[in-house]
């Protein structure tokens, strides 16, 4: 009865692995939410860090604002460039070789670990270009990090557009640009926005690239692009690493996760939204 036993073991394996995965998700979320809820309050969200060492009391308002600004800069800088590249590769590029070169470069960049991107940002943006540890340096570094992510998804979406419909549009004597703006982009808009928001989620959660390029232990809400910023992931790292306050750390982790999930939910909603016909 080897067969029956094998089948049984096989099923056990599948059930067990799925159970482990679901248990892990449940545990991680439950752990952060339950512990974080205890020390979160409106005051925590809306006030500056206080106490000795700094952060032991008070709130995380500058970190929340800082993280949002960093994400915004990263998304803005990366998405313009990534979209242009995706459009170029899928609509204008005539040579297969050039296409492969672009893909290899983008893949290489996707393979560069975030800390090495941070290292680049530190040396080039902060030191050589003299931008200092600032909102701008950190935002751009994050932008470099999420560029490949956006490019790959945007290109995939553009390429999935029905070729026959493109041909029909060109056959009317209409230009590529008009076709792109009136037919293709309206169709791919949801996918592209979803890719950008998802990338924004990554940028917001990333600590490694900003340790050296702009995130600091304490700063007020940034006034300009050249001021240093607080960021949620870095703040969480400092609170735990330096053993400042466990309660505040739980609460910070919860805020960070809620923000990222909010972004992800927007992205998922966009992906699933039926593409309505415009009038």
């Amino acid at each position: 009865m080897k067969k029956v036993r094998d089948n049984f073991l096989f099923r056990m394996w599948l059930m067990l692995s799925a159970l482990i995965v679901l248990a892990l998700v449940g545990f991680i979320i439950g752990y952060i939410v339950l512990n974080g809820m205890k020390s979160i309050s409106l005051d925590f969200l809306l006030s500056h860090p206080k106490g000795i060492p700094l952060g032991a009391e008070g709130g995380i308002l500058p970190a929340i604002v800082g993280s949002l600004l960093l994400t915004l800069i990263a998304c803005a800088s990366a998405s313009v460039l990534a979209l242009a590249t995706a459009v170029y590769v899928s609509f204008y590029c005539q040579s297969r070789q050039l296409e492969t070169v672009v893909h290899v470069i983008v893949q290489c960049m996707a393979g560069v670990p975030s800390i090495v991107v941070g290292l680049f940002g530190y040396t080039f943006l902060v030191a050589k270009l003299n931008l200092g540890r600032s909102l701008l340096s950190a935002g751009l570094t994050l932008g470099v990090m999420i560029f490949p992510f956006i490019e790959v998804r945007a290109e995939k979406s553009l390429r999935e557009f029905n070729r026959a419909i493109l041909q029909s549009s060109y056959a009317l004597g209409v230009s590529k640009v008009y076709t792109l703006l009136k037919l293709v982009l309206p169709q791919c808009k949801a996918d592209i926005v979803a890719a950008v928001t998802l990338a924004g989620g990554f940028a917001m959660g990333a600590a490694a690239p900003i340790i050296l390029t702009g995130a600091v232990i304490f700063a007020p809400i940034p006034r300009s692009l050249s001021s240093p910023v607080m960021a949620l992931p870095f703040h969480l790292y400092i609170l735990t690493g330096e053993g400042i306050s466990l309660e505040k750390a739980y609460a910070t982790a919860l805020v960070l996760m809620v923000l990222i999930f909010a972004i992800n939910i927007v992205s998922i909603a966009l992906t699933f939204r039926r593409k309505e016909v415009g009038r």
């Binding site: 029905n162 026959a164 593409k275 415009g278």
Partner: peptide
Amino acid sequence: GIVFQKPTPFPLS
């Protein structure tokens, strides 16, 4: 003008 074998309406109204 040309019309192809398979109908290719644009995904518009």
